[in-house]
Design a protein around this nucleic acid. Structure first.
Lengths: 124, 124
DNA sequence: GTTTTAATTGAACGATTGGTCAAATATAAC
DNA sequence: GTTATATTTGACCAATCGTTCAATTAAAAC
């Protein structure tokens, strides 16, 4: 039924996630995403609906995956730029936090942000 | 020697700092700043030079002041959105970090970010 | 009061933003 | 092969972005 998708959504979301981490949410333009993924705006919007949709999908995927850098990176961007204005993303992060038994979530976030800023070395 | 300034730069910088904390760096427009401060674009640019200048000045001021919320808030925004692309801001944050003896800077940053996101309660 | 200097005003600029959509294309169903 | 459906294409849009600057206003210097 109809044309087949010419790309893998999850692969694209991983690229998109990296962009959001590197540039922040508001610092990443659709043009950046088009350039990075090689897809055209229409395809992106047909698949993810909106920029917020792209972020939300990338965040969800990162929480299912085993890439700590991706996960913490997107969580930080979410908390600083998205959560205060997007209830769906707020709930995703809140739900993740609830199931997080670890006592040092704050420390992990802080450490990851220090690494992101370049203040702290990127190696373990 | 010429007309007198009709506003206090530091007062304006405190307002600007709050905006950057609330909306992030890229999420704050000059229009937002004009609206919040009541000043016009020309006055802002004559005083601070650029948007980056406004942020840099607000950050510097926050580090001299006794407002923990303002300080951590701007440091977080700086680390996520500005530091990777602005060497001057990077040096300011790096210098602040160097003189920071505390062992739990990371925890403070993480905690403050969790509060900002709404995940953690805002009271102490 | 004239001149000089500093600050304010706000219209205007080109660039970029997130988002749309009619046309073209490709696959499945019959 | 025809029809129905899903996807891609990319030109286009209004809105907003950060920034500039000539004109105006106000104070200091003389």
């Amino acid at each position: 039924m109809g044309k087949k998708k010419t790309f893998d959504s999850n692969e694209v979301l991983l690229q998109v996630g990296q962009l959001f981490i590197t540039n922040g949410y508001n610092g990443t333009s659709i043009g950046d995403i088009v350039e990075e993924t090689g897809l055209l705006r229409g395809s992106l919007y047909a698949t993810f609906g909106s920029k917020q949709g792209m972020f939300t999908s990338a965040l969800k995927l990162s929480l299912e995956r085993d890439d700590e850098r991706l996960k913490w990176g997107l969580l930080i961007v979410a908390m600083l730029e998205v959560t205060p204005r997007n209830h769906q993303v707020f709930e995703i992060v809140q739900n993740w936090y609830r199931h997080q038994s670890s006592t040092n979530v704050a420390t992990n976030i802080g450490t990851e942000l220090l690494k992101h800023s370049g203040i702290l070395g990127g190696e373990k």
